[in-house]
Computed example of a mutant assay.
Amino acid sequence: MSSKQGLPLPMNTSLPEPAGALWPAIVRQTAHALDRGALLPIQTSRTTIDDGGVRFVVRQISSLARKEKDAQQRKAGSSGARASNPFLPYDPDLFVADISDTHLVLLNKFNVIDHHVLIVTRRFELQRALLNLADFRALFTCMTQFDSLGFYNGGPEAGASQLHKHLQIAPLPLDDTTSPLPIEPLLASARMDGSVGTVPGLGFAHAFVGFDPVLVSRPLELAHSAFERYMSLLAATGLHAVDVNGEPLQSAPYNLLVTTRWMMLVPRRAEHSEGISINALGFAGSLFVRNETQMDIIRTRGPMSILKEVAGTI
Rank of each mutant, 00 (worst) to 15 (best):
H32R: 11
D35W: 03
A65Y: 11
E274V: 13
M295I: 11
S2W: 04
V117W: 00
L131H: 02
D175H: 14
F146G: 14
P86S: 02
P86R: 00
F136G: 06
V199H: 01
L126E: 15
I99R: 00
I314D: 02
P173K: 02
H103Q: 00
L131K: 01
V242F: 02
H32S: 10
F56N: 13
L94W: 06
R261V: 10
K165R: 14
A252Y: 01
R299V: 15
P92F: 03
L202D: 09
T144M: 15
V112M: 12
V58H: 08
L139Y: 01
G6E: 07
T121M: 04
F151R: 02
E309V: 09
P185S: 13
L281D: 10
H116I: 00
S84C: 06
L9C: 12
T260W: 03
I119H: 00
T313N: 04
T198L: 08
A252L: 12
F283K: 13
N279Q: 06
V96L: 07
S84W: 02
P41L: 05
L133W: 02
A33S: 10
A223I: 03
L15Y: 06
I278E: 03
R128E: 15
G155A: 11
R301G: 09
A160G: 07
R268C: 12
Q72W: 15
L64I: 00
E247G: 11
R218W: 11
L34W: 01
S62T: 10
P16Y: 06
T177F: 08
P173Q: 08
R229K: 14
L220F: 09
L307M: 11
D93H: 10
G285F: 01
P18F: 14
F95Y: 13
A190L: 09
H224F: 12
I183Q: 09
P24D: 07
G312V: 10
W23E: 14
D114F: 10
R66Y: 07
G210R: 06
A21I: 01
S14Q: 14
R74L: 06
T47A: 15
Q145R: 15
L64Y: 12
L249N: 14
S84H: 03
T178Y: 12
V27Y: 13
L94D: 15
G302K: 01
D176A: 14
P267D: 08
H32K: 07
P86G: 08
D51E: 05
V117G: 02
L167N: 00
F56K: 12
R74K: 03
P185K: 14
V214C: 13
T198F: 03
R137N: 12
L265C: 08
I298H: 01
G201A: 10
D175Q: 11
I276S: 09
L239H: 05
K308N: 13
A280G: 14
R82G: 02
L233G: 01
L106H: 09
G312Y: 02
T293W: 03
F110M: 01
L172G: 08
A284I: 02
S2P: 00
E309R: 11
L256H: 02
H103G: 01
